[in-house]
């Protein structure tokens, strides 16, 4: 439990247009003689640090555009970071040999949000789930039927349906196919990117239960990315709250829901619809999430924050410990 399985150190990810020679000349000319060229770079993730211990379930929460999916993709090795290091079991993925890197990638698998878009519609279930273990030599060539059946059964699918295509399944069953595919290569770490967001409430409960069973049976570690605080609260040991590419608060799940420290976390928790609520008056955080292309200076949240001070628009707050294991990035904590 006390060994980190995934570590991100100072990871940033920027997305920008790629300029051809002519565009580069035009930009440098306009920088010298005219108005400076517009900055078109999106800072999706900005100096992000995270450690996930073996066996832990870390919930990553944030609104659309905050960079949470980008984190997930970098952890799963689908996307390289622009800056910083991604460490798998203490080793930088970049420094690994080809063979070791392939192995590390197999150990980290991803489950996607959309069970319709993430399965190839022209492949049968047996190939969707069975292709990767066959390719990686986890099952003997030409054999592996038993292995495949076991994978399907573990995800709650009837192996009798393995000759079918994805469109012959319901949304919840398709998500099970995605889970069986990820687990077929015997990963240790699962990145679930909004994995239950597209499902009906009763089906969502079935899939969340499956995740919990698998964690127990296979000793899995999860990075659970979601905008749904109710789901994250139920599942996670530790929660990270993101706003515009940065972590604003990090704490054990109970702690974050009982004593939220950052004003953004507090506002977010206040807005979560709760089934226990009856006929209440709705109020709301003012304003919208700013564009990550042009984030506000200082603390990204200050234009919407009810406690903003002059300092907040100048200096970006850093994550500081406010209680044991509970860190928050807010200048309010510096005041007595």
């Amino acid at each position: 439990m006390n060994e980190p399985i995934i570590e991100l150190r100072g990871v940033s990810k920027r997305f920008g247009p790629s300029y051809d020679a002519a565009a580069r000349v035009a930009r440098s000319l306009s920088a010298r003689f005219g108005s400076p060229p517009r900055n078109e770079t999106v800072r999706a993730v900005d100096m992000f640090d995270m450690t996930v211990m073996r066996g832990e379930v870390v919930g990553l929460v944030g609104e659309s555009g905050c960079g949470k999916s980008t984190i997930g993709r970098m952890v799963a090795g689908i996307m390289p970071p622009t800056e910083g290091q991604v460490l798998f079991k203490g080793k930088d993925i970049v420094s690994l040999s080809t063979e070791q890197a392939k192995d590390a990638k197999l150990k980290v698998q991803m489950i996607f949000q959309d069970p319709y878009a993430s399965l190839n519609p022209r492949m049968r279930v047996e190939d969707i789930v069975g292709e990767a273990p066959r390719y990686h030599g986890m099952v003997p060539k030409g054999g592996g039927d038993d292995y495949l059946d076991a994978q399907l059964q573990r995800a709650g699918l009837d192996p009798a349906f393995k000759r079918r295509y994805p469109h012959q399944f319901s949304g919840g069953q398709r998500q099970r196919i995605g889970i069986a595919r990820a687990l077929a290569v015997q990963p240790e770490f699962l990145v679930c990117d909004e994995a239950v967001a597209a499902l009906d409430v009763s089906i969502q409960a079935q899939i969340l239960n499956l995740f919990m069973d698998l964690r127990r049976d296979l000793d899995l570690t999860y990075l659970f990315i979601s905008h749904d605080l109710g789901v994250v609260e139920h599942l996670s040991d530790r929660v990270l709250i993101m706003y515009l590419g940065r972590i604003v608060e990090s704490a054990p799940a109970e702690e974050v829901f009982a004593h939220p420290n950052h004003p953004y976390t507090q506002a977010l928790l206040a807005e979560v619809p709760r089934i226990e609520a009856r006929k209440r008056r709705f109020t709301a955080i003012k304003g919208e999430i700013p564009s990550p292309m042009n984030p506000p200076p200082g603390c990204h949240f200050h234009p919407r924050c009810p406690h903003a001070m002059p300092r907040c628009s100048v200096e970006a707050p850093v994550l500081k410990e406010v209680a044991s294991g509970h860190r928050s990035a807010c200048h309010l904590n510096d005041m007595g």
Binding site: A205, Q206, N209, M212, G230, E233, H234, L235, R274, E276
Partner: peptide, 15 residues
Amino acid sequence: SVPSRNKKGEKLRQI
């Protein structure tokens, strides 16, 4: 089956 109606970490009641 709503997560907040269930005890944390326990199995959700499912249909």
